[in-house]
Amino acid sequence: MSRKIFIIVGDNLGLSRQQINYDALEIVKFPVFVGETEYRQSEEYSASWLISKYENEKVVAKSSTLIHNEIAEIVERNRANYDLFIHVVMSSGLSAASFRVAENVKKQFENIVPIINVDTKQAINGVGNIVLGIIDLIKTQPDLSIEELEKACQQIVENTFSWFVFSDLEYLYRGGRIGKAQSLMGSVLHIIPLLGLMGDEKEGIVLAQGKARTFRQINDMIINQIKAKMQEKSVTTIKRAITLQGYGDKNKEAIAEFMEKIKTLPCSEIIHGEGGLVDAVYCGPGAYGISILL
């Protein structure tokens, strides 16, 4: 008999609930603070709402970590019906606190229900790509032992790579996701920095992947780096690509050109991700990017 598995993931996964075809899954909403006020993703408080505030009110937004009790409550509520929980967590290199919360919940349910915490080494659509990869795994290999499943999840992590183009690194810096030095990369010559989260890197932190002065250059750079990564991993077809886009009208032409370019890649499935409120905290207006699972 197949194991019944419940997946927990934060809402910084670059996908909407409708884009995930798996019932036993709950998306936990990250608290987002604009000034002193806390917001959670909703129809009213969406990514476009925050981008609009960024553009019009110059506000500073930050996200907080997931709350222990909220995760524990989900486990408690569902543990009677499931054999295993998989909590897909954003990179511990970006938020050590989030992973610690996940580990504490796991400890709380030790000897009650098994929980696999997956440190994705990713954020935004990278997390989404790993969630979908794990769902594929559960569906295609339902009889894996917990140890085997844990190992297979790790392989998915190591085969997931994301590239991000941010018009302004100030949002990442203010949110504590990059250092001051990195945030200044784009402050001279109107340089567009290319950032990435590489699954085969140990730290799971945002790394500079290149710099360019035109979007055309940066788009080519991403495509070339994807091809190089495929070659390095001896992969001929990308299993899944999830794009990141739509944070306001900024860079529309560049994004459109990028979306055309990724169509040239050998890819089994391209999903145009729908990022939520918390994703927009760090992206800022005009951000775009792609995550691939090899």
């Binding site: 010559l189 340089i191 790394l207 500079a208 992947q209 290149g210 710099k211 002065r213």
Partner: peptide
């Protein structure tokens, strides 16, 4: 020199 600095990473 600009080209060099654009192409390399501290990492």
């Amino acid at each position: 020199l600009i080209s060099i600095m654009m192409s390399i990473s501290k990492d």
